[in-house]
Amino acid sequence: MKIFENIINHKINTITADELLKYADQFNIVINRQQAAKISAYLRGKNINIFDNTQRTQIVREIAKVAGPETAREVNKLFMSFTK
């Protein structure tokens, strides 16, 4: 399982706005291009482990500051779907 966690975390840490929009569309999450750009810029290069509840919660809080609380909730749903 560790290899899948590494792959998913790597993708989160290197995601682009276009990729984030693609995933959002796939999982029926509504975000616009500007929000996707801000979120991906924040995530890129942070070495985040979304399987760690503390880190994931902190990231969701930061996303709420950047893109709003509703978007943060939606992104958290996306993260949760990746971790299952």
Rank of each mutant, 00 (worst) to 15 (best):
T83C: 08
I48Y: 12
I12P: 06
A17W: 05
V66F: 07
T14G: 03
R33D: 08
Q35K: 07
A37P: 06
I12F: 00
L20E: 11
A24T: 11
R33H: 10
K2P: 00
T16V: 04
N28D: 15
I12V: 15
N13F: 03
T57L: 05
N32K: 08
L78D: 06
K65Q: 10
K2C: 00
N28T: 12
S81N: 06
A64V: 02
Q34C: 03
K2Y: 03
G68W: 08
E62Q: 15
T57M: 03
I50P: 13
T54S: 10
K84M: 04
E70K: 15
N49G: 12
A37F: 05
A67L: 04
N49A: 11
L21H: 06
T83K: 08
K2E: 10
E74L: 08
A24P: 13
K77Y: 03
F4K: 10
I31S: 05
T16R: 00
V30T: 13
G45I: 10
R73T: 13
S40F: 02
A72V: 08
K38Y: 04
V75S: 06
A17S: 15
R33N: 10
F51P: 10
A36I: 10
N53Q: 11
L20D: 12
S40H: 09
S40K: 10
M80I: 02
P69M: 02
D52I: 04
E5K: 15
A64Q: 03
R56M: 01
N9L: 07
Q26R: 15
Q58S: 07
F51D: 06
L21Q: 14
I48D: 05
S40R: 10
F51K: 09
I29K: 10
K22P: 00
N76L: 01
S40T: 14
L21W: 06
I31P: 11
I3H: 07
D25M: 04
E70Q: 15
D52C: 09
I39S: 11
H10L: 12
K11Y: 09
I7H: 03
L20T: 12
A24M: 04
I15L: 08
Y42A: 09
V30K: 12
N13V: 08
F51M: 09
K11F: 06
T71L: 01
K38E: 13
T71F: 00
F27E: 11
T57H: 08
N49H: 09
G45W: 06
F82V: 03
I15E: 03
L21K: 14
I12A: 02
P69L: 05
T57A: 14
